[in-house]
Design a binder for these strands. Structure first.
Lengths: 208, 208
DNA sequence: GTCTATACTACGATAGAC
DNA sequence: GTCTATCGTAGTATAGAC
């Protein structure tokens, strides 16, 4: 399947070198095909780029959907909702730390900094899906908050997990881990989950 | 000062379009000079890029140093340390949210995802400076934690503020704020600080 | 120091053979 | 569908005038 091979190669190279930095020549060569295959399958470089976004959305959904479908919480079950958030967060953080997702993450990071049409597709296709569930659960865990504050809590909690990927270089530096080894990854995931639990089961002095 | 003008233009364009996407032609033209000025002042594109990193370090230090110098905490003053972290965090988050720092942030973000020599310079020149202080304060606020856990707490707290910049596109989306207005920015900064206070004054059930 | 002019390379797109 | 060959454009670097 040359189409898929092109997509995966392209995500790698777009992620590592940016849209301009990655060349169709190099992508085609790495995928062991001719440059004009890109024209044939995707219409051109731009089309290939957008197809990469769609491909990432599919892959993320494949991993996230089963996770999301396992949580079911009663409307008044505060501690159940807290545990559900922690469970989802641990799964999501694990995905963020896995090497498998590194190329997608770099691709998405580029779009986060300089959003194009590709970001719109990733946001509506994957990010919204996750955040809707998280906001809902935060709402159950923290009924004292109104909608906008629930959203701010949800995004800061999830932001920590995303930062595990986006800020990896500086995390590795601070932990003096040359590469993110399993122990360091576990340490950081545990920390992010503990922080989330802390925020959701707010002690009186930090209630807001 | 054409050198400075070139640097600021270059940071903008490198940040927005990446190293490959930004062309020396365009940078020189925007800075109202000839392309060969870049060769004269910086030796070439690569040299210009590294000089941008050094320039960012200087600018960040100018803003961070006065902030860091205002905090002085006794070794046993737990609540003092917590408040100091919150104070620094608020200042730092404010810097992260300001439009002035947006070009630098994009530049640094590119380096975080794909570190080069430029990241090494930014890390040693600016990031290490900040994180050393934060880790020290976290150590006072949470004497129950050993060094590695202090670091993990410090990086997750600071990561929230950095994510305000790196994840801005998705934050705006979730808050349904087309652009990050003052109210949304204040909401997010308050939230990040509240989370930090929550984490540092840990309630028993989330102690770890 | 700053400019113009030019050499050389690499890019994306496309036409056309198979 | 996939390839080769080629065209026009845009990039960096550099030489040399002033």
């Amino acid at each position: 399947m040359i189409r898929k091979h092109l997509l995966e190669t392209a995500i790698h190279q777009f992620g590592e070198r940016g849209f301009d930095g990655a060349s169709t020549r190099s992508i085609a060569a790495t995928a062991d095909t001719a440059m004009s295959s890109i024209t044939y399958h995707f219409g051109g470089k731009e089309g290939l780029y957008l197809a990469c976004a769609d491909y990432i959305v599919e892959e993320v959904r494949d991993r996230i959907t089963p996770l999301l479908s396992t949580v079911e919480v009663e409307d008044s079950d505060r501690s159940g909702a807290t545990e559900a958030v922690c469970f989802l967060l641990r799964g999501f953080a694990g995905i963020m730390m896995s090497e498998e997702t590194a190329p997608w993450a770099r691709f998405v990071s580029n779009e986060l900094q300089q959003p194009t049409e590709a970001f719109e597709r990733i946001a509506t296709g994957a990010i919204d899906l996750i955040m809707a569930k998280v906001v809902e659960l935060v709402g159950i865990a923290r009924p004292d908050l109104d909608e906008i504050h629930r959203r701010s809590v949800a995004i800061t909690i999830w932001g920590q997990a995303i930062f595990l990927r986006l800020g990896r270089a500086s995390i590795e530096r601070l932990l003096e881990a040359n590469t993110m080894n399993a122990a360091a990854a576990e340490l950081m995931i545990d920390r992010v989950v503990a922080n989330a639990r802390c925020i959701l089961t707010q002690s009186p002095e930090c209630r807001q």
